[in-house]
Design a protein around this nucleic acid. Structure first.
Ligand SMILES: [Zn+2]
Ligand SMILES: [Zn+2]
Ligand SMILES: [Zn+2]
Ligand SMILES: [Zn+2]
Lengths: 131, 131
DNA sequence: TCGCAGTTGAAAATCATTTGCATCTAGCCT
DNA sequence: AGGCTAGATGCAAATGATTTTCAACTGCGA
């Protein structure tokens, strides 16, 4: 039942690189397409597996697009944070806010809820996409 | 291109009632099961169709569970608001907060994003489920 | 260099949700 | 009250995203 040792493979490096290069939030399919266009030898299955692994490790953030598909992003900060995401291109800015953290805690307490965490994301159109 | 007239049917009434009775966020399947247990004559397809319709009308709020499935709730307020949701039973409290609204607007402006909206939900364990 | 646990890919399996279509029925007209 | 028809329903099949299966492959420590 111990953690299984992870290897460093071409595919995993490639996914990490693609994620890095993307900058914004991307779906597994998006990353797969980008990788294939770059001539990478990888399967969609492996992209999914790698993303799941990275998400579990906490090295990528996962959100859901309006349509419900999972989108991933390699964030600079590994601390808890929020995002301001561009609906057009997926570009994202990482946001920290004691304000929201305090609010969440205060509200939870007021209503007697415990083990409370939260999700707070902003969606808009970035300057570049605003045309 | 005009809106198509909607009828009031047994099934729609039943879904509305189930939603009302649920109190918290529920998946289409959850509602379907509850309805069937109550002896309602309805198909899962219709539950989905009705929920989609209600969501479009804005009379139910839609969130995504951690696993990505859509969960619905009939909220008292039709105004924009947030939720404090129980991870165990789905019970939810509606939250209004000028604080969060202001924060969102401020952050968006600071980064030059336009048409910004946001999602802010709190997840925890309610008093009842805390055992 | 060997051995093998961890990894990969292609295809099949899941799961939630949607769609096609033939069959009903609510609501309006007479 | 009976009929008409746009709208609604149910089942089965189609989708789409994600996961699993499993046999073949490959990092990497000995
Ligand atoms: Zn992030
Ligand atoms: Zn936070
Ligand atoms: Zn609500
Ligand atoms: Zn708000």
């Amino acid at each position: 039942m111990g953690e299984t040792k992870k290897r460093s493979t071409q595919q995993r490096e490639a996914v990490a690189r693609a994620l890095e290069g993307a900058g914004g939030f991307r779906s597994a399919q998006d990353l797969f397409d980008a990788l294939r266009n770059d001539g990478a030898k990888i399967s969609l299955t492996t992209v999914y597996r790698t993303l799941q692994y990275l998400a579990d490790e906490g090295s990528v953030d996962v959100l859901r697009s309006k349509e419900g598909e999972a989108i991933f992003r390699r964030c600079a900060s590994s601390e808890h944070h929020h995002h301001l995401v561009c609906r057009e291109c997926g570009a994202a800015v990482e946001i920290e806010s004691a304000e929201v953290e305090d609010w969440a805690e205060r509200v939870a307490e007021r209503h007697g809820f415990t083990s409370v965490d939260h999700l707070a994301e902003l969606y808009g159109v970035c300057r570049k996409c605003a045309n």
